[in-house]
């Protein structure tokens, strides 16, 4: 069946390259001729604040820049506390892709708030939605720091899941990142595709 479009929330914290991620993904969908609306909401806070990107592509003009809770097809999250913030937005058959990276929240660090007693990874997997956790410890690479390249790893994982052409995606990465980073990015991309293949098998 032809893909008429999807609603995606991309979440994480400042400095994780989320804007680059949504930029790369948008180029892919533009090449396929889709209409797009991407809303990047960077929360209150200097560094380490939450980042939330609403990414919508469709074969018809996209109306609202924000996705209504309950209308999200895919949640792609780079930080697990942030994953929890958007679980309720997923459709019943929506899919979660989440890193198990955690940046402790300042309010917990300073004891103004209590941390959640449960394991966040478990809370995510218990949501009832189809879930893929990208485990940073299990997927360590000698070539690069996976937590710093999570955006490219996630891009490859998502492309594998959707059955998109890796050649085209890598082409977009090459066009978009400075020459000196291309090699490292491609390594991260290949790693992401590998992790995805292992989990999807």
């Amino acid at each position: 069946m032809q893909d008429t479009g999807k609603n995606i929330i991309i979440a994480g914290v400042g400095g994780q390259g989320i804007l680059l991620f949504s930029n790369l993904l948008s180029k892919y969908y533009m090449k396929l001729g889709y209409e797009l609306k991407i809303s990047d909401v960077i929360g209150l806070g200097q560094r380490g604040g939450g980042v939330e990107s609403h990414f919508r592509y469709s074969n018809e003009p996209v109306l609202s820049p924000f996705i209504k809770a309950g209308d999200v097809d895919y949640l792609l999250s780079f930080e697990q506390t942030e994953t929890l913030r958007y679980l309720h937005c997923l459709k019943d058959d929506g899919v979660i892709f989440s890193s198990n990276f955690e940046l402790s929240t300042s309010s917990v660090n300073t004891r103004l708030e209590k941390d959640m007693p449960e394991s966040k990874t478990e809370l995510i997997t218990k949501s009832g939605n189809k879930t893929f956790i990208i485990d940073l410890d299990e997927n360590k690479s000698l070539d690069f720091d996976i937590s710093k390249m999570m955006n490219i790893v996630m891009l490859a994982f998502y492309a594998e899941f959707r059955g998109y052409s890796h050649e085209e995606m890598i082409e977009i990465v090459k066009e978009s990142v400075p020459a000196k980073f291309v090699e490292g990015n491609i390594k991260a991309y290949e790693k992401g595709a590998m992790i995805a293949r292992a989990q999807l098998a």
Binding site: V13, L44, Q46, T81, T105, S106, S107, L112, M116
Partner: peptide, 10 residues
């Protein structure tokens, strides 16, 4: 979901 900690600006 309830109880998700807030990110205070730092």
């Amino acid at each position: 979901m309830e109880g998700i900690p807030f990110r205070l600006p730092v």
